[in-house]
């Protein structure tokens, strides 16, 4: 089986696992969402048994059905794109809520992740090439940045650049009363609002790429072919980029997959700090309102997005590493 085929198989299994986990959590955890919701609604008057039953059906938690039957029903609903109604944004469907929020997240997290990867990898290459320079001395400082909670740096950024200096808006994704339209004012307003959250994500996630790349690069620089390249009298730049970095970057791309879930988790929190109208903020609203259908759907959609990004990284890997193109 080819490399890519194996990866696709793996992703399919992972999607199945994520969906199954998603199905099992509300059914196996001690807290029953229907019970919680009933408890919440009971403050506003008692519920009839029929209303309770209706809620159970709406959540797909009918206890008289067997687990297998519920599981089958769950898949059928999923393939119909039916993820239920949102409690928070009632009467919107979960799918609609996510569809409005997703583009914001994709733009913010996608672009800042790519920027962080490029800058971090670039600095990593240089830090390994010029060992002992100030770049290498900066490594412990970058360690500090990897350890910072994303959302806390976001809080500090809001306090400093938003409240004290007043350079950037405190929250939101657009100016007051603006609608999504593709014209100059929209784009500039969107960029203006995205700047601070994007910088927060870049600063905190960059260090991880940097340290990883530097370590791979240092290992690669010890290889014989780098020595040969130098012995041939090739230019520094050529040895660094074409011989060493080109090989050292492969594991970095392979680990892109694994690091991405960390980055996405952090980005969710950054959105919450900045009240950015993306998936993370919607997830926060869902948590605040005990909106279980929305929470679960967001977990699925984030997992799916991470898997797609991983698959793109795999395609890049196949393109870059000829060994994966050979029949194994």
């Amino acid at each position: 089986m080819s490399y890519l085929g194996r990866r696709v198989g793996f992703y399919l299994v992972t999607i199945w696992a994520a969906i199954t986990i998603n199905f099992l959590i509300p059914r196996l955890m001690p807290g029953n969402p229907v019970q919680l919701l009933i408890a919440r609604l009971q403050g506003q008057g008692t519920l009839s048994t029929r209303a309770i039953h209706a809620l159970s059906v709406a959540f797909g938690l009918e206890t008289h059905q067997s687990l297998v039957a519920q599981y089958w029903h769950y898949w059928v609903q999923l393939f119909h794109g039916n993820l239920g109604l949102s409690v928070t944004y009632y009467p919107s469907t979960v799918v609609n809520v996510i569809a409005t929020a997703l583009p914001w997240t994709l733009a913010l997290v996608g672009i800042s992740t790519v920027i962080a990867f490029v800058i971090g990898t670039g600095i990593g290459i240089l830090a390994a090439w010029r060992r002992g320079s100030w770049l290498e001395a900066a490594l412990p400082i970058s360690t500090f940045f990897t350890a910072i909670p994303y959302f806390w740096l976001g809080l500090v950024a809001v306090a400093v650049f938003g409240v004290v200096l007043g350079w950037f808006p405190l929250s939101g994704g657009l100016g007051q009363g603006m609608a999504v339209a593709f014209n100059g004012t929209f784009i500039s307003s969107a960029l203006y609002h995205a700047a601070l959250p994007a910088v927060t994500i870049v600063v905190t996630s960059m260090a991880g790429w940097m340290i990883g790349m530097r370590n791979m690069m240092v290992t690669t620089l010890g290889e014989d072919y780098v020595l040969v390249a130098q012995a041939k009298g090739l230019s520094e730049r050529r040895v660094m980029m074409t011989y060493a970095a080109r090989n050292a970057i492969l594991p970095s791309i392979a680990s892109f997959a694994l690091s991405l879930s960390f980055v996405v988790s952090g980005a969710i929190l950054v959105e919450i700090v900045f009240s950015y109208p993306g998936i993370g903020y919607v997830l926060f609203q869902a948590v605040q309102n005990e909106d279980y259908p929305l929470m679960e759907a967001i977990f699925l959609i984030i997992t799916l997005a991470v898997l797609v990004a991983n698959f793109v990284a795999d395609l890049a890997y196949v393109f870059l590493d000829p060994r994966t193109r050979q029949e194994a």
């Binding site: 793996f10 807290g31 988790s265 969710i268 929470m295």
Partner: peptide, 24 residues
């Protein structure tokens, strides 16, 4: 190893949010 790879790729925080939301 398939099991551990699956857990590596699934974003941890959203999963944890869903899990802890059911554990008030």
């Amino acid at each position: 190893s398939m099991l551990s790879n699956i857990f590596l790729v699934i974003p941890a925080l959203p999963l944890l949010i869903v899990l802890t939301a059911f554990l008030p």
